[in-house]
Amino acid sequence: MLKIENLHARIAGKEILKGLSLEAKAGEVHAIMGPNGAGKSTLGNVLAGRPGYKVTDGSVTFDGKNLLELEPEARAAAGVFLAFQYPVEIPGVNNTYFLRAALNAQRKARGEQELDSMQFLKLVRGKVNEMGMTPELLNRAVNEGFSGGEKKRNEVFQMALLEPRLAILDETDSGLDIDALKQVAAGVNALRSPERAFLVITHYQRLLDYIVPDFVHVLADGRIVESGDAQLARELEAHGYGWVREHASAGAGA
């Protein structure tokens, strides 16, 4: 479904990704771990099309299409979803209105029938129940005055509603207490399906106790230096990122 080859990307003139390659198939959950500054968030942002990032080499194909030439909204309509590390507050824009505008814009772009307000409300109420979301948050402005946990849950809620094919979670666990973390993980696990792939970007292994990945990749200095299964995350937790660097350079030298 997603194929990243030799991806090089820079922001503000600084090269962050330096030849990253990764392949994810439908149904798989890939965890991307790594120290601060390794390029984890850059990867998520480049995939979602955030302005300011410049891809200088390499390719990203998504369902056989060149993802990099699509506008952010077209990527969303194609099924890419980025759960933001720092979801923005949008005063004056009602959450329900925003969700409906987003869903209908995607449906329209895919040539599907837009939902009227009755159909949409029915759908949204169902998702609210499924996800254990506070219904009151729907009537507020998008993320305005939300706590850190509420913002992250709202990201997962949007994901549930928009049903992407590729969900990228950018440090969704950061700033969450253990209860909020469990709720967010439960929301994500509920969305795991054979048709959907996840990239779970995280600094800590903790989240992966709750969202158990099929693959773990270690990102360091703009490249994937180590890949393995869920066990790799535990080793990282035990030995720290320094171990990976040594391990990787030892491997490269052998």
Binding site: E73, A76, P87, I90, V93, A101, A102, A141, L162
Partner: peptide
Amino acid sequence: EQVLFYLRSRGIPLELARRILVRAFCSV
């Protein structure tokens, strides 16, 4: 720009995103 990108990343086309934000800006 960050807010515009947030809306676009959810599938809302740029022009509609601009309109939504300007309207929200004034509606207070």
